[in-house]
Amino acid sequence: MATQHSRSAARIMMAPAVFLLLVWMLVPLCMTLWFSVRSYLPLRGGDQGFVGLENFSRFITSSAFWPAVQTTLIIVGGVLVISIVLGVLLAILLDQPMWGQGVVRILVIAPFFVMPTVTALVWKNMFMDPTNGMFAHLWRFFGADPVVWLTDASVLSIIVIVSWQWLPFATLILLTAIQSLDSEQLEAAEMDGANPVARFFFIALPHLSRAITIVILIQTIFVLAVFAEIFVTTGGAFGTRTLTYLIYQRVLESQNVGLGSAGGVYAIILANIVAIFLMRIVGKNLDN
């Protein structure tokens, strides 16, 4: 991009993509903003005109709002903790030379390719079913009463399902990071008297910090929007109603597009707060 000419050529070439992206993002965003200030009840009279910020105050004062925010944050946090802790361990394991490494790596990545709906169905019916699920059999084998996962430990169940889906992603990113760790650094630490645990905490983990922040950033943005897993398993019952799910219920179950749109705007704000917060951490980490 050195000359004036090549720069303007580059702009022209990028224009269609930029235009498409803008339309793609801006049209739904504008529609959301538009509906959020109107009373729009498709089955009960349609668009009933401008109502100011009424939708916003109603959404936030509804008894379901704060629990939904809380649930959302618990699920995001839980998934992050599980996928990063297990991801680091798995990455270290997969980095060890072993027989059939290639196949094992592909198997570990596999869950990422399964659609969320399918994942949720598999977990619901194969593992967590209180009569025929694998866990139920396992519990009975040890003489315990099977746990009714999706009602008694519903949030945990959702966290487990979503973590299972995102663990491969975390593992993959962390594995590439671990592979880039200079082996001489580890040897130097070994000569310096660091035992394996110290080597992990003083050398490997700091080396992974950048990859970990990237995993946190990307996963947070995607997990905030988790929907299919909840829809298929609990349907938002038993305290698993996240912000996304609440918006869905407002729009489709209560047929209140205006109220749902206001929720959408809150979700955008929440996601941005989280994103700005994370960007600063990532920025700090990427600087050095």
């Binding site: 200079d182 040897e187 130097a188 070994e190 000569m191 310096d192 660091a194 003083f202 050398i203």
Partner: peptide, 21 residues
């Protein structure tokens, strides 16, 4: 005897400094 207990110190070609410290 493991490396740390031999009482030897090594300087590597790549220096092997810890970049985050």
């Amino acid at each position: 005897v493991p490396p740390a207990k031999r009482g030897l110190a090594m300087v590597f070609q790549s220096y092997a400094l810890y970049p985050h410290m």
